[in-house]
């Protein structure tokens, strides 16, 4: 699938000098570790923003970033072209928070001005009125959850993590939402993230792959093209504990999203309809 012809998995950590705000290293470490647990050698290659992005990677990870570094990262990635070529060659792309937004068509810069993204995901992001900060629990999109089960990963259909952003993201017809939120804001329309083909993004930042080992395994499955044997890890316990804690309403406002309410992707800034959210006592 990719241009990497060695047996070693190459994980490209894109621009840790600009896109590494809070625990982003966690996604890189988890991916490498879960590959190694299956006997697959994995090499992590950090690529600073002054270096060319190599095209021979299997997975490219883009982390979170503050406004100005995000704009710089988009400009340099567009000028460099390496990531787009790798994407075209079939590499797996995984972006979180700022990294998610910049995989899209457009996002908001320091002053809220529209900045061109990489155009790899059919999403457009703008700045919301308030910051979304807190734990998120969500249900994975049935299509991607189904693939995870087929891939041999545990039958996990939920996503948990922490969000800290002020973005609102509208999805175009070219993507599906990664998950439907049970608590938290995500894209701002009752969903979080987006995916298409081998490109996946989410607002859940930092170590989202440590919180969701099934998602980490899904990325690996996309690369190796076959299912992976399950492995036991503390991450499964953490996933369940966080999910229970968040759904018990201990940590943040709970927004109940009706299962049959299909988000249109064109609604803007619909944080919570009155009456559907309750703030739980801490």
């Amino acid at each position: 699938m990719s241009v990497n012809t060695s047996n070693e998995l190459r994980l490209i950590w894109v621009y840790p000098d600009l896109l590494s705000t809070y625990g982003d290293q966690g996604n890189v470490i988890m991916l490498a570790r879960r590959a190694q647990l299956r006997g697959i050698a994995a090499e992590v290659v950090p690529v600073r923003s002054d270096e060319p992005v190599p095209t021979g990677g299997d997975v490219y990870l883009l982390g979170g970033g503050e406004d100005r570094p995000q704009v710089l990262a988009a400009r340099r990635l567009r000028a460099d072209g390496g990531l787009a070529r790798a994407a075209e060659a079939g590499a797996v792309l995984f972006g979180v928070c700022a990294g998610y937004q910049l995989l899209g068509e457009e996002f908001a810069g320091e002053e809220g001005q529209p900045v061109a993204g990489l155009g790899l995901l059919d999403i457009r992001s703008e700045r919301g009125e308030q910051r979304a900060v807190g734990e998120v629990a969500a249900q994975l999109d049935p299509d991607i959850a189904g693939e995870m089960v087929e891939g041999g990963a545990p039958a996990v259909r939920s996503l948990t993590g922490f969000e800290n952003h002020q973005g609102l993201t509208r999805r175009g017809p070219g993507v599906r939402p990664l998950a439907r939120t049970l608590t938290g804001i995500g894209n701002g329309d009752g969903t979080d993230g987006a995916y298409h083909d081998h490109f996946i993004g989410t607002y859940l930042h930092g170590p989202v792959l440590a919180r969701n080992p099934a998602l980490a395994d899904h990325l690996l499955t996309l690369v190796v093209g076959h299912s992976l044997p399950p492995v036991a890890s503390w991450a499964d316990r953490l996933h369940q504990e966080r999910l229970n804690a968040v759904l018990a309403g201990k940590t943040r406002p709970v927004c109940k999203v009706q299962a049959d309410a299909e988000p249109t992707g064109t609604r803007r800034h619909r944080h919570h309809a009155p009456g559907t959210c309750t703030t739980s006592p801490r």
Binding site: Y22, G23, D24, Q25, I29, G134, F162, A210
Partner: peptide
């Protein structure tokens, strides 16, 4: 808790 920061992501740094 609140004074610690409610986000443990930093453990990965």
């Amino acid at each position: 808790r609140g004074p610690d920061g409610t986000d443990t992501s930093w453990l990965w740094d």
